[in-house]
Amino acid sequence: MNNNFPRFYTLNDSGLGCLLTFLLIGLLLGSVGLGWIVNGVLILFFILLLTPIIGWAVFRWWLKRNLVEDQCPVCGYEFTGFNNTECRCPNCGEVLKVEGNHFKTLTPPGTIDVEAVEVSAQALDE
């Protein structure tokens, strides 16, 4: 090969012979009356091509529907969890339950959960 001569036109025919072979086999089978084999192979090819695309779209839809991003009710740390599951806060270690797209503290049955409210002290003059 002469490396000093510039190439103006190059032909890369890798795979072209394989494609032509498949095309000729398909035409031969179609002319003999076995076109259903060609149709079956093409349908299988398109199913194998479309399955990952549809699967990825379904996975993203499921993830968008079940992934919850909220703050811990104990320490206020924001993190993500899956809906209708139990998890621990990575900051304070509190066991939380994810319900209705919010984190809630997990309390044993019979426990009354209260929230403290700060009341300012005022002197009464009488």
Rank of each mutant, 00 (worst) to 15 (best):
Ala123Thr: 00
Val114Thr: 09
Ile47Ala: 15
Cys18Ile: 04
Val98Trp: 02
Leu42Asp: 03
Leu67Glu: 05
Ile43His: 08
Gly35Val: 12
Lys104Leu: 03
Phe45His: 10
Thr10Ile: 11
Leu63Lys: 15
Ile112Ser: 09
Thr21Asn: 07
Ala57His: 12
Thr21Tyr: 03
Ala121Leu: 08
Leu96Ala: 07
Leu24Pro: 02
Leu63Ile: 05
Thr80Ala: 11
Phe46Lys: 10
Ile25Glu: 00
Thr51Val: 15
Ile43Ala: 14
Val58Gln: 10
Val38Ala: 05
Thr111Arg: 15
Lys97Gln: 08
Val38Ile: 03
Leu23Thr: 02
Asn101Ile: 00
Val32Pro: 12
Phe5Asp: 01
Phe45Asp: 05
Leu106Ile: 08
Glu69Trp: 08
Leu20Arg: 03
Gly81Cys: 00
Lys64Thr: 06
Leu49Trp: 11
Val117Met: 13
Cys89Gly: 09
Gly17Met: 05
Asp113Phe: 09
Pro90Ser: 12
Thr85Gln: 11
Leu106Thr: 04
Lys104Trp: 01
Val41Ser: 05
Pro90Ile: 08
Arg88Ala: 03
Val32Ser: 13
Ala116Asp: 11
Leu67Arg: 02
Cys89Thr: 07
Leu20Tyr: 00
Met1His: 00
Gly100Gln: 03
Cys18Ser: 03
His102Trp: 06
Gly33Ile: 09
Glu78Phe: 15
Asp125Gly: 00
Val119Pro: 10
Cys87Gln: 00
Arg7Gln: 01
Lys97Ile: 04
Pro108Thr: 10
Leu28Lys: 05
Arg60Trp: 09
Trp56Leu: 15
Asn2Arg: 06
Cys89Ser: 09
Gly26Trp: 01
Arg65Trp: 04
